[in-house]
Design a protein around this nucleic acid. Sequence first.
DNA 1: GCCAACGTTGGC
DNA 2: GCCAACGTTGGC
Length: 141
Amino acid sequence: MARWLFKSEPDAWSWDKQKAKGKAGQEWDGVRNYQARNNMREMKVGDLGFFYHSNEGKAVVGIVEVAAPAHRDSTTDDERWECVDIRAVQDMPTPVSLDDIKANPKLADMVLVKNSRLSVQPVTDAEWKEVCRMGGLDPAP
DNA sequence: GCCAACGTTGGC
DNA sequence: GCCAACGTTGGC
């Protein structure tokens, strides 16, 4: 199963808001970047991802699950843009900050480090396990 | 608030 | 199809 990372500014859409949506989940709309869209097209229901707070907090704060495959983004009429639905699964027992990630040599190749501007990113199995371990989730979900 | 990095746009 | 100009993102 593939692993992902979803980035959001807490001012725009926070982890608390995501959790408040519960099992129904929430459309991950507003993405206007082809790479990010293509990543979402690759997702399958049940894939897991990190929920990352950018700007404020700058940390992985939770785990989400893909609840619906890619579909038209309801916030635009432009049919180029698609998005998946995601739902909150659990909190990171300890948020894993960007500083922590950068300080870990095992995570030097993470897209979050290499291309911080991409808002929906793939995460490798090794990176997934390592970030989960750092966040207090061992074994990784 | 600044600015570097990146993606997108549009003129040629 | 190239590339300069522009807008946006996100770390600092």
